[in-house]
């Protein structure tokens, strides 16, 4: 029983995906969805996917809201930059991280890359620094500090 529910978030995600794909909530489809997501979670157990404990799930909502706001803002910034005449002052920025949890790092990488205007290039596990390319640095250091304070602090609270 423990093995079945080792990945509750993954289970719910697979369950929802199956129902969306089959476009119905008939009892048969619900049963199939439960079956498929249980098998999927067994597969995750078999490949030993890295597992983290969500310590404060409520903060996830806060994180999502903050990411949406930032994506919105940087969309507008990059749109202006692309259409405008000013050449972007892009730069590589190295940010030291305190976050060690593999899932937390993966989420941070996805957030940084999905936000237009910043791309996660390379993570160095030995020095635990990350190389990020920023399309337009208003002022280079402030950008790294902003990421550190807004996202990393929140992820640290959620995962560790």
């Amino acid at each position: 029983m423990r093995r079945v529910f080792a990945y509750p978030v993954l289970w719910v995600a697979l369950f929802g995906m199956w129902l969306l794909l089959s476009r119905s909530v008939a009892p048969g489809q619900l049963l199939l969805a439960a079956l498929v997501s249980t098998i999927g979670c067994w597969a995750a157990v078999a490949v030993e996917a890295p597992k983290s404990k969500l310590r404060k799930p409520a903060l996830v909502l806060k994180l999502i809201g903050r990411v949406l706001l930032d994506v919105f803002r940087s969309n507008i910034a990059v749109l202006q930059l692309t259409v405008g005449r000013r050449a972007p002052r892009s730069a590589f920025v190295t940010i030291p991280l305190e976050l060690r949890d593999p899932n937390g790092l993966a989420i941070l990488a996805c957030i940084i890359t999905a936000t237009p205007g910043s791309a996660w290039i390379n993570y160095n596990a030995r020095t635990s620094t990350v190389l990020v390319h920023v399309l337009d640095t208003g002022d280079g250091i402030a950008w790294g500090e902003a990421v550190k304070h807004s996202y990393e602090a929140l992820l640290l609270e959620i995962f560790e």
Binding site: V93, T94, Y123
Partner: peptide, 26 residues
């Protein structure tokens, strides 16, 4: 030498991680 010309770099370790790209898969 891409990535070593950081403005006001807090940490110039970009060169040393050339060899170890196989770490976390991130």
């Amino acid at each position: 030498d891409v990535g070593a010309d950081m403005p006001a770099a807090e940490n110039r370790s970009a060169r040393s991680d050339v060899g170890d790209t196989d770490q976390t898969g991130l």
